[in-house]
Write a protein that binds this DNA or RNA. Structure first.
Length: 565
RNA sequence: CGGGGCGUAGCGCAGUCUGGUAGCGCGCAGCGUUCGGGACGCUGAGGUCGGAGGUUCAAAUCCUCUCGCCCCGACCA
């Protein structure tokens, strides 16, 4: 490709809306263009990189027996009502009506469509296992798109669905896919980490995410420094230290004028946070829920949502709290009735805790569970924090940030039972199919690859996903020998199957060299009167600092060796 | 949805407080000089100042409403 003809210009200044590196570089290099919040066009260079990623994914999917197919974006809303996932996705679903006023949605994922499709085509155990995938556009009305390609509303995703006869077979398929995913990330220049995950709106039991560890990631990852335990913070469990052994004392009312927060309370009384019980009020699908947790911990809303098995969970407003007869700032479960209550087991680890007295400016000392109050539900709803104990080995948990570049789920029979996807086993018994689903967002993967592979000058493409292999850059555009040598080399390399970006523009050396660094092709070739006089060409790997001169006749071999072609 | 910031030429910005009819740098076009790390000179094109309404002799600037974008949080396969 001749750079003079390439659609998409590089920018000297970084557009101000971009904050993270991949977004800045993609815009600056002219690889993407924003149409609206979370909606982007891919320009030729960006599109080439994206297609390379798709092809890597295809190869790995095919290698584990995947068959590619294509399902529709437009889906009847009815189908989603059958599984009640319209409620689970809520406002994230893009909905529309056709001319006959039938409700349709733009598919955010394809479990329903896929299950229906398989129902018609699988009848016997002989048809299983089955791996079906597509690479297709998804639509999700995210509350807040961000970070360029990191979180968008319209995006391309590879989604794979596996179908097996039973749970054991499903597990085998699950691990096959995990292996394929790891090879994909490695190929894209991304060290990834497999972490336990919440299964969210997809449903199902086991779920893992693939994380690329980077500060710009929006997910928090908890991992153990000793064993291999790691989990998304949404899912992570932890072991809290018990409080000191003390003799339970009788409950005592104390005056706490103007004290409304844990912070103020601990300062006022001179006690540590973990000697207090924090009260938080939520509204779950319209119902008020009283949540109690030890003062040093925070509520994990994903865990709480799962525990309550609700679709919508939000903090209650001050008005709602007052209406329910609760005293914000001094509320506790000791003495409150008629409100649904959930508590974290952390409150059972201490003795003689301080909690609200359910009247203003008053707290209770020496509150003990279960002596002084009861709860409807006692379950882990705490956010795991660095420094706490590992649930597996007791080691110390650490925390870091990551970009979720893939997510896999064991769906079990959730969809097959609801949508009637069954098969007949060897003994003639009809059984539900065991499913798994697996997704990789290709655009996010592209962005993550840049987050991990760049320097202050620009992108450093990993070879397998680089838009072109070689950036051919003749300097001295008015030197005829240089120009004709470059033209010749360009044709010769293309003929050999190398993908060449040929900077045939009449620009100063500075502009060309800077653009070469910004665009980030793995190899840069420079021709100039200087190199020509020695009968050689300068080769530089984008990743390396030093360039080397290579004799004309050895260029091709050297390039292929570096590219492993 | 809560908090913050911002919409003026393709990109980066000034001008807004204090109203007087739009400017700078980069980029773009033409000519000439230059050519191994974002060269220089001359000439030129390009903007209903996000939109609507209002105040005023006069609005990018003041007032009201509205749309959009970014960041933090909530949220989110």
């Amino acid at each position: 490709m001749r750079l003079s003809k390439l659609f998409g210009k590089t920018l000297r200044q970084t557009p101000s809306e971009a904050e993270n590196v991949s977004h800045q570089l993609l815009l600056k290099a002219g690889m993407i263009h924003q149409l609206a919040a979370g909606i982007y066009s891919y320009l030729p260079l960006g599109w080439r990189a994206l297609r390379k990623i798709e092809n890597i994914i295809r190869e790995e999917m095919n290698a584990i027996g995947g068959q590619e197919l294509m399902m529709p974006v437009l889906q009847p809303l009815e189908m989603w009502e059958e599984t009640e996932r319209d409620l689970a996705f809520g406002k994230g679903l893009f909905t529309l009506s056709d001319r006959r006023d039938r409700k349709l949605i733009l598919g955010p994922t394809h479990e329903e469509v896929m299950t229906q499709l398989v129902r018609r085509n699988v009848q016997s155990y002989r048809d299983l296992p089955l791996f079906l995938y597509q690479i297709q556009t998804k639509f999700r009305d995210e509350p807040r798109p961000r970070g360029g390609l990191l979180r968008v509303r319209e995006f391309t995703m590879k989604d794979l669905y596996t179908f097996d006869a039973d749970e054991e077979a499903m597990d085998v398929s699950y691990h096959k896919v995990i292996g394929a995913y790891q090879r994909i990330y490695e190929c894209c220049g991304l060290p990834s980490m497999v972490v336990e995950a919440d299964s969210g709106a997809i449903g199902g039991k086991d779920s893992h995410e693939f994380m690329v560890i980077t500060e710009s990631g929006e997910d928090q990852v908890i991992y153990c420094s000793k064993c291999d335990y790691s989990a998304n913070v949404d899912k992570a469990e932890s072991v809290k230290l018990p409080g000191e052994e003390e003799k339970p004392l009788p409950v005592e009312e104390i005056a706490t004028p103007g004290i409304k927060t844990i912070e103020a309370l601990t300062n006022f009384l001179g006690i540590p946070r973990k000697k207090t019980i924090k009260a938080v009020f939520y509204v779950a699908d319209g119902e008020m829920v009283f949540v109690a947790i030890r003062g040093d911990l925070e509520v994990n809303e994903v865990k709480l949502k799962n525990a309550l098995n609700c679709h919508e969970l939000r903090l209650a407003s001050d008005e709602e709290v007052a209406e329910a007869g609760l005293v914000a700032g001094s509320a506790s479960l000791a003495g409150v009735t008629g409100v649904k209550s959930v508590a974290d087991p952390s409150i059972t680890l201490g003795v003689n805790l301080v909690a609200g007295a359910n009247k203003p400016d008053t707290h209770l000392k020496n509150v003990n569970y279960p002596r002084d109050f009861e709860v409807d539900l006692m379950t882990d709803i705490a956010i795991a924090q660095a420094g706490e104990g590992c649930p597996r080995c007791g080691g110390e948990l650490q925390s870091t940030r990551g970009i979720e570049v893939g997510h896999v789920f064991k769906l079990g029979t959730f969809f097959s039972e609801r949508l009637g996807a069954t098969y007949v086993d060897q003994s003639g018994v009809e059984r539900p199919i065991y499913m798994g689903c697996y997704g990789i967002g290709t655009g996010r993967l592209l962005a993550a690859a840049i987050e991990q592979n760049h320097d202050e000058k620009g992108i450093i493409w990993p070879i397998p996903i680089a838009p072109y292999h070689v950036h051919l850059c003749p300097l001295s555009p008015d030197n005829e020998q240089v120009v004709s040598a470059a033209e010749k080399l360009y044709l010769q390399l293309e003929e050999q199957g190398l993908e060449v970006l040929f900077d045939d523009r009449i620009e100063s050396p500075g502009v060309k060299l800077n653009d070469a660094d910004l665009l980030g092709m793995p190899l840069r070739l420079i021709l100039s009167p200087r190199t020509l006089s020695t009968g050689s060409v300068e080769i530089k790997e984008r990743r390396e600092k030093e360039a080397t001169l290579v004799p004309w006749e050895e260029i091709e071999g050297r390039l292929k060796a570096i590219l492993s072609l």
